[in-house]
Design a binder for these strands. Structure first.
Lengths: 236, 236
DNA sequence: GAATTTAAAAATCTCGAGAAAATGTATTGA
DNA sequence: TCAATACATTTTCTCGAGATTTTTAAATTC
């Protein structure tokens, strides 16, 4: 068997230097190597990413779409700041949109959707087994994202899915702060499994309830982070 | 009296050439001077907007945030295409988000919000009186946007408002196609007035109903446009 | 000592030219 | 006639250097 997620979810090759720099920067921001609020000096960064100044500026402009970078005219770029208030907003907005998208997806999903969902869950479960503090962390992150995307893949609204992809990215940035600090992670596997079964049984109400709680739990674990550690840089 | 809308809604001066080009391009796309799907050649456009190639590329990158421009690596930029399917999606998503935001705004709005709302409606009404086919059209567009923004201004969710501003821009692009072609506009004034009163009376259900219908009516008038006129360029 | 002014330094913003890729056209061969 | 290949043109992408603005620091004044 060769079950794989839908093509539009798989990452495509970067064709230009702008896109490479864009992805590298996005990774560094989401994973916290560039600290929230940090100033992004073009002259300094262009060496790190091996591109020219104009190219880097373009990549930074693209990151404004994702609200991972902010800029004010003549005062350069900064990593978007973080706050508990902001993450609460992200969480609530995401609950509303993702539940709606999930209901639509459950209502419209066909056999292929079910198959993709099952496959995505399986891939995620495999990554969860060996996740204990290794470098498979990135693998798990990727598969978790795909599972959530496949869940709502059958929702026909492109705009809803577009907004959710932005919110997911934002949430991942906060979530990593929690997982990085928290020694005892909650049992995410069971939540995913319950979500899978509710979706496969086409029980939209139950699935939406589980998803809401799933998203809100992440907020609570971030809420527990000491405020002064929220803006810290991680790793090099 | 010097009642004016909240500062964050008022347009700020462009401080850089990138921003100027960004705004000029955005205007030209929304108002249809650059046709949907049209190729945006940097070498050709940089003269029209009086900036260098790099600067124009940066402005185009910013327009990707607004989903008014699309790009594929090594194949340049294009004006985002339009379709009835897309506008239906925009409409539905906007109905959901804007009604939710309106309910929150009605629940949280204070006296200042009421005053701003009343003022915004008054300014809009004045523009509606003399709107019949003159160049005050742009004035009306601006005041219509501000009225809708003030309606939901008391909603505390920044993300909701951010997404709505994107959707509003998109909808405006479609709406202009309809108003440009349609000789008999519907009575938008009464819809706005009913919306104002429901909001001032804090009747969230009624306000949401009116707003839903208000947004959906726009979709229907665009639906009536012949398909072959949807992708046409307007004016020079 | 605090606040304003002045000057130096750093960073941003901007442009035009060159390298890489894609598009369009002509040529060749079946 | 059609398909495939090779060439020429167009366009995109990329870089480094110069102009403008902001930031930093020191010096002056009250």
């Amino acid at each position: 068997m060769n079950i794989s997620p839908p093509a539009e979810i798989l990452a495509t090759e970067p064709k230009t230097l702008v896109e490479s720099a864009y992805r590298a920067l996005r990774r560094d921001i989401i994973e916290g190597r560039l600290a929230p609020g940090e100033k992004l000096r073009v002259e300094h960064l262009k060496d790190n990413y091996g591109v020219g100044a104009g190219t880097l500026r373009e990549a930074l402009s693209l990151l404004i779409s994702d609200a991972l970078v902010v800029s004010q005219g003549q005062r350069g770029f900064r990593v978007a700041p973080v706050s508990l208030e902001d993450f609460e907003d992200i969480t609530q907005t995401r609950v509303m949109l993702e539940c709606d998208a999930l209901r639509q997806s459950i209502a419209m999903g066909d056999d292929a959707w079910e198959a993709n969902l099952l496959a995505a869950f399986h891939r995620l479960a495999k990554a969860e087994e060996k996740r204990i503090g290794s470098e498979d962390r990135e693998e798990w992150e990727e598969r978790n994202r795909i599972f959530h995307e496949v869940l709502i893949a059958a929702c026909p609204s492109r705009w809803l899915k577009h907004f959710l992809s932005i919110l997911y990215q934002q949430a991942e940035r906060y979530r990593r702060m929690s997982l990085y600090l928290q020694p005892i992670p909650r049992d995410i596997h069971n939540e995913h499994e319950a979500l899978l079964h509710a979706a496969m049984n086409r029980d939209a109400d139950k699935a939406a309830d589980i998803l809401s709680e799933h998203i809100r739990l992440t907020f609570r674990s971030v809420q527990a982070i000491p405020a002064d550690q929220l803006n810290e840089r991680r790793q090099a």
